[in-house]
Design a binder for these strands. Structure first.
Lengths: 350, 350
DNA sequence: ACATATAATGCAAACGTTGCCGGGAACGAG
DNA sequence: CTCGTTCCCGGCAACGTTTGCATTATATGT
């Protein structure tokens, strides 16, 4: 067993500071500070002495002291609805990748799809003097006052995926309309004519855009939109199932479903299985779906993929540029990334 | 569009401080400080005045100044191999849940399964004056010197899942041996006798423990261990597949596989499908698997589940207790949580 | 030798907060 | 009238770092 030296004495060692180095060398703290950052107005001998001792004592500057002085924390906050799903965690991986390389740290918050919790998190963030925020709003978020307030305080904000329409701050989104259009066209090409659209809360930007793509595709094929085939639901599995059961009581029944989130797609999938409907023979399915496991599902699900890692990277790049240029906007108002469609068994020609 | 007032003027407002309040009220900063924390040695009228103004100006204490003074950051660091997989993100959700309620923030780092990157992250963490660390070590990590060094600096550390044996600090693990034992017994009960064990790097604690459970189950059924049926691989899909193809060239071929991680299980699954082997008719499968999507896979996979959210919660509770008691150990040296097995089609009697 | 330029270093303030110490005012007791 | 006590409050230092300015010592030019 390797045991820490200090396991046995309660007193923990204080990190070595500039003052410690100054004291040991009999010089002033300012000289040490300048020597460490290689200022030219310090004698070469002194500088070497200081740098050597600093290395020996394993000096590392205290970022908290620096933050206090320079009024920046080198920390960016991320608020997502839930971290424990593939989409969010992959986006965060992208954010972390860029942040890490730019010397920023990432702190994570979850809104758990609650507006109230989102507001609390934002206040917490603001009081923590975080340098910037990347957010995908909760399912409940219709107003952007909390975000506007944060921006008013001078904190740069980048939104991704679920954006808040009324807030004018840079955003990273996927071409939701295009994705839904492609998916719907694909179903239509396969001969499905009664396509249901099972989607999220109507006020969410992604919902609106995917709806737009869905309707455009129908229009292109001159299929009238059936209101009763458009279902909005939240992220609770029981509710998703209830909504779907109701949908499937319609006559004529839809013969295809476009599901606009992983959770909804899985919910649909379960209900169809429970009802012993064959996919795609009785009813076809296409979903917005990123989890790589989905291609092993039986039947394998045709998926609209979002470029998750890219979304995170782009959002982080945008935000850090804003932070370092000390501005609240960016030359890019909106970065829109393309979706890709992977056609699999669940949407094959009947 | 709601636009932030300051979108149009570059100068961002400075957060209001105690000094601002003191100046406006013509009193000293220390009085304001005391009034805000409700000290009894402040006149009721003054206190009310201060508190009202603080509320009006939306004063929030600067946590960075506090951190500097009190030498603690109220931030805990988390290092995981990769965040973008179900296990890790679910553990982090558990950590965040507890941390949030205890007034701590969570910052995330990824080692990307590289020892080197893990060391860099730990140094970064230390220089950031983080209050504590929760870590699951990388696939490459065999030595614990970097962790010992951090502990020597007085930073409390809790390990979870992939622990580092030589480091004596609290750990939260699952009953890996028990899980593997259950899985193997289950396969044996179903009549499978040639059970291969596809697992991770041999020096990892989880590998050792799962191996132990596997061997115990075989011993119970008086089946000799076949070395050639034990395969170690890393997390690269190509390598997993290569290892598996080699394994399946043995005669007699194994007729069941125990896969000890989600990635390995998926890799095995793909190879078996490619080789047109039927599951479980030709070869059965059981895997350590947490992703909820796995029950929709064809055939549905028998899974050993780890209590991911609990692991995160327990680790966070442990760590925060250590931080607040200012100690490097805990009455619980090891918290071991039970696995659960969900029997599905992939391991049914042949 | 003296004025001046130049190089190297120290001092002090600042960032926002808290806590110790000290002091003035009011008041009661003697 | 004096002393002691209590109540409120201000001043100062400290946390670790940076930076403008002052200071000292040395070198250069005449």
């Amino acid at each position: 067993m390797v045991k820490g030296l200090y396991l046995y004495c309660m007193q923990t060692p204080q990190p070595v500071t500039i003052k410690d180095i100054a004291r040991k060398l009999g010089i002033s703290a300012s000289t040490v500070s300048r020597a460490l950052r290689g200022s030219t107005e310090i004698n070469d001998d002194t500088r070497k002495l200081v740098q050597d001792l600093a290395k020996e004592l394993k000096y590392t500057p205290n970022p908290i002291a620096l933050s206090l002085k320079e009024k920046r924390s080198k920390v960016i906050g991320v608020i997502v609805p839930e971290i424990a799903n593939y989409f969010c965690s992959a986006v965060i991986a992208g954010i972390e990748d860029i942040a890490y390389n730019m010397g920023y740290h990432v702190v994570i918050f979850q809104s758990h799809e609650k507006y109230e919790r989102e507001v609390i998190n934002i206040n917490l963030l603001a009081s923590r003097r975080i340098d910037g925020l990347i957010i995908s709003v909760s399912n409940e978020t219709q107003k952007g006052a909390h975000l506007a307030e944060l921006i008013d305080k001078g904190v740069p904000v980048v939104m991704f995926d679920r954006i808040c329409d009324e807030i004018d701050t840079p955003r990273v989104v996927t071409d939701d309309a295009g994705g839904a259009y492609d998916a719907t066209c694909h179903l239509l090409e396969q001969g499905y004519r009664r396509i249901a659209h099972v989607t999220m809360a109507p006020y969410l930007s992604v919902t609106k855009n995917r709806m737009k793509g869905y309707m455009e595709a129908l229009k292109k094929y001159k299929i009238p939109v059936q209101k009763k085939w458009i279902v909005h639901c939240d992220f609770d599995f029981a509710n998703i199932k209830k909504a779907l059961v109701k949908l499937l009581k319609n006559t004529p029944k839809p013969n295809a479903i476009l599901a606009t989130s992983e959770r909804i797609a899985i919910g649909c999938f379960e209900v169809l299985k429970e009802m012993k409907l064959r996919i795609p023979a009785d009813i076809a399915m296409v979903g917005f779906f990123d989890n790589p496991v989905c291609r092993f599902i039986d039947p394998s699900l045709t998926a609209i993929h979002q470029p998750t890692f890219d979304i995170g990277q782009s959002a982080a790049r945008l935000l850090i540029t804003m932070i370092e240029n000390n501005t609240l906007h960016h030359q890019y108002k909106t970065i829109e990334l393309k979706t890709t469609m992977e056609v699999r068994a669940s949407s094959m020609r009947k």
